[in-house]
Nucleic acid binder design. Sequence first.
DNA 1: TTCTAAAATTGAGTCAATTCGATTTTTGTG
DNA 2: CACAAAAATCGAATTGACTCAATTTTAGAA
Lengths: 204, 204
Amino acid sequence: MSGLRARQKADRHRRIIEAAAALFREAGYEGAKIEAIAAQAEVSIGTIYNYYQNKGDILGAIVSLEVNEVLNAGRGVVARPPANVGDALDTLIGIYIEHSLHYLSKEMWRQAMAISTQLPDSPFGQAYTGLDRSLTEQIRALIARLQEIGLVRQDIDGAALGELIFNNMNMMFIEFVKREEARIPELRAAIRRQNRILVAAIGV
Amino acid sequence: MSGLRARQKADRHRRIIEAAAALFREAGYEGAKIEAIAAQAEVSIGTIYNYYQNKGDILGAIVSLEVNEVLNAGRGVVARPPANVGDALDTLIGIYIEHSLHYLSKEMWRQAMAISTQLPDSPFGQAYTGLDRSLTEQIRALIARLQEIGLVRQDIDGAALGELIFNNMNMMFIEFVKREEARIPELRAAIRRQNRILVAAIGV
DNA sequence: TTCTAAAATTGAGTCAATTCGATTTTTGTG
DNA sequence: CACAAAAATCGAATTGACTCAATTTTAGAA
């Protein structure tokens, strides 16, 4: 059987992630020393580097958990969207934004975003790009759904529109996490205002 | 007179920037060791840290030069825009993108972007945010100009539209610098396609 | 059970950014 | 021309992420 080794591996993965998540929150990303994470997880420094290529990848694993939850939550909206283009977009985007600070602090988001542009070819960099793509895809799916229902004109370029909406939202979110004092309601209002232009253009 | 000290200061600033720019290009940002920059600029490590808070700020100074050139070039387009909404946007955005790799390599851009999100309150982080704001402002100015000329409907929310266009372009540019093999013509075509939705919505 | 190869763990050592207190240079005053 | 205060320079020491060769643990064959 492939029991012991696999079980220990999964267990150590979990312990490292839990230790890192706790320390990142408490001390911030830079403040959480690898040595401290190793101690808390009861493994050696070397073992951490056996599981993750670098410190960023540890954060990356945590980010992936968060974004996958968000994607899951978004499915419901795509399946049964509000009967109004503006509300449909606002609802989906609202889910993304409201969930975003569940496990991750703004500081953790900043680090994660920074690493993903700094090292786009690292495991985390590629995973992050994939997550962005999935979010774009989900927005595109919502638009396609709205086109089916007849709320959005058939001749609209859904792919381009999905990218436009995601890119704008994402950049607004980046600016949001860069300002510690920025608040979610204002962020959502600003995005709604921007999307209003699009909504006017694409409605039947 | 306040001659010597001020002159030496300006000279050292210049030498550090020139040394750094050369080494960043040759060896990449990570590959350019502070020790090497100091040697090439003929100052000590300590002096570099007297002039710049950290390695990122040196890169920041170079990025600022580049972006300010771009902003300058953009003024001409805003003053006398092509007589067509789509072309006007494409021309301005074209200037931004075509200039972007003049002094900075993709790798330098990636690092600069990463640092600006990682340390939004550092001198460079704040400067970078300011540069983004200036670019957004310039796009907004172009739209205002097009409204004056009568090419864009008066009832369009120019501020929101400017942000939408900038945010989308900026995110596309981020993805562009993340992929070493990505090419400028494709980037511009993709942005044009996205903006087409907007152009259709805002034209008179 | 015993043994060997493969896999995993370990932590002391390396490397490079950044700090900081000692030293040197510049300035302006008497 | 001194001289003292202020400003700037300097580089050795610190710090923390990451590496890697030695050691330990596990798997599974005999």
